[in-house]
Write a protein that binds this DNA or RNA. Structure first.
Length: 157
DNA sequence: TTTCTGATTGTTAAT
DNA sequence: ATTAACAATCAGAAA
């Protein structure tokens, strides 16, 4: 059977006017707001994984690995989770924890409309901007002199 | 005691 | 374009 080509289904010249309208609506909300700042990060972020990952898929980390390294900001979904959790626990005090909530939350999230989600997206967008700033500062500091550690780094607790 | 796991989606960086 | 990893959370299980 000759397989085939089903590779270019729409690409090149498929830009119809209808496509434009559709794309406008489907685009990410944050993208619509304005272009992201031109922060060019090439080698800033390094990802030295956690040496403590027994599983093939690392997921969490122990405690502090890099106090200077800004962690990834929570996504819109996570913000929604925070609110959702509170409500969920009120209605379901019997539920122990997030495994159930996560499912319920994800399900509801899918049902939410753009307008409802956009609020969280907005928060996430703003948060990301802050994260980028923190990241830039972190890099700067790191390049400036990571040797500078002594002051009150970490004594014993 | 300490560490990891699970489950959800979103965002990012790298390929 | 797609993949891989990580973001929070918390109670329970494993070592």
């Amino acid at each position: 059977m000759a397989k085939k080509p089903a590779k270019s289904k729409k690409s090149l010249s498929a830009s119809s006017s209808a496509d434009k309208e559709k794309a406008l609506k489907l685009k990410s909300p944050e993208k619509m707001k304005k272009t992201v700042k031109p922060i060019r990060v090439s080698e800033i972020e390094k990802r030295p994984k956690n040496p403590k990952k027994p599983k093939a898929k690392p997921k969490k980390k122990t405690k502090k690995e890099d106090a200077n390294k800004p962690k990834k900001p929570p996504t819109a979904f996570f913000f929604f989770l925070e609110d959702f959790r509170k409500e969920y626990q009120e209605q379901n005090p019997d539920v122990k924890s997030m495994r159930d909530i996560g499912k319920a939350c994800g399900e509801k999230w899918k049902t939410m409309t753009y307008e409802e989600k956009v609020q969280y997206y907005d928060i996430a967008t703003e948060k990301r901007a802050e994260f980028e700033e923190a990241m830039a500062e972190y890099i700067k500091r790191k390049e400036s002199g990571e040797d500078q550690e002594s002051e009150d780094s970490e004594y014993d607790e």
